[in-house]
Nucleic acid binder design. Sequence first.
DNA 1: TTATTGGTTCGGTATGTTGTGAACTAAATA
DNA 2: TATTTAGTTCACAACATACCGAACCAATAA
Lengths: 155, 155
Amino acid sequence: MTTEERIQKQKEVVEQIGRHFDKEGFQPIAGRILGLLLVMDKEKYTFDEIIEELQISKSSASNALRNLEIRGDIEYITLPGDRKRYFRFRKHHSGSIIEDIEKKLNNLRELSMAILQLKADPQSENAKYLIEMQHSLGVFLESIAQSKLKLQSDK
Amino acid sequence: MTTEERIQKQKEVVEQIGRHFDKEGFQPIAGRILGLLLVMDKEKYTFDEIIEELQISKSSASNALRNLEIRGDIEYITLPGDRKRYFRFRKHHSGSIIEDIEKKLNNLRELSMAILQLKADPQSENAKYLIEMQHSLGVFLESIAQSKLKLQSDK
DNA sequence: TTATTGGTTCGGTATGTTGTGAACTAAATA
DNA sequence: TATTTAGTTCACAACATACCGAACCAATAA
């Protein structure tokens, strides 16, 4: 694979990553920026380089970058004697994907417990379903806890 | 807790469930319908009851119900000699939450492998991050597999 | 002091989403 | 055959979002 080809493919993956993050609730441009910072060989981009590479306006870039920074997905550094900011992908510690899932499932479990407690008939179809679901969630959350321990000890 | 109070609380939980499903990408009304069918003691609702309960238009109800049915989240039954459809929550087998997560993580892993393969420098910061993430995902997917086995045998 | 650089903020447009009411349809009933 | 029931479809209004260009600002350079 030539360098050209590789770069071409990288740009396609930037687009894919963009779509991935769209689905996670990011705005399209924010997804593309994240993709750019993560995928390309150059891992630090200036504001102007981002605009140039993605062909977007300054205002769009400004807004998306601010949002991404607030969310903690990117960060920037500055170099002495250089007013430009260099943006880069911010490594959330790698367990955070798992922790997000954990949080969501705990949430779901609590919701389902709230529903169950308000059921007049604890033998109703939905009540039985909720009980089963809570069991599954319990098993799953348990295994998440174990994964976390294992990852901790791997370090 | 009186029945009145209980019903009041159930309605609040319907709203909560609605918001939960909103976040999962459902349209607001669809989330409320799902909440209604799942939370209230009456676990089968007709079209008109849904409209009445949620104070929504026929067209909104019609659309949301069609979408929910296509997605497999609800189903309806009909009774002989009764033209009305009775909608109810459809129990997806309780592992499906887990399977959805599994699918998403596999997706993420593939994406990150694609990125890594295109990196010129496999020692770059992002490359190292991706490798670490893939390790975490591997551990986690392994434990998901175990959870699934355990749930299988619990049955 | 003026000009340039590196952005931010503002106002507006284009697009997409949600929901509505009204007209419609198909089946059952009178 | 006419009417009612149970919903569907259509056209549109209201609202949200995503982005852009232009004006602006603050810091540095000339």
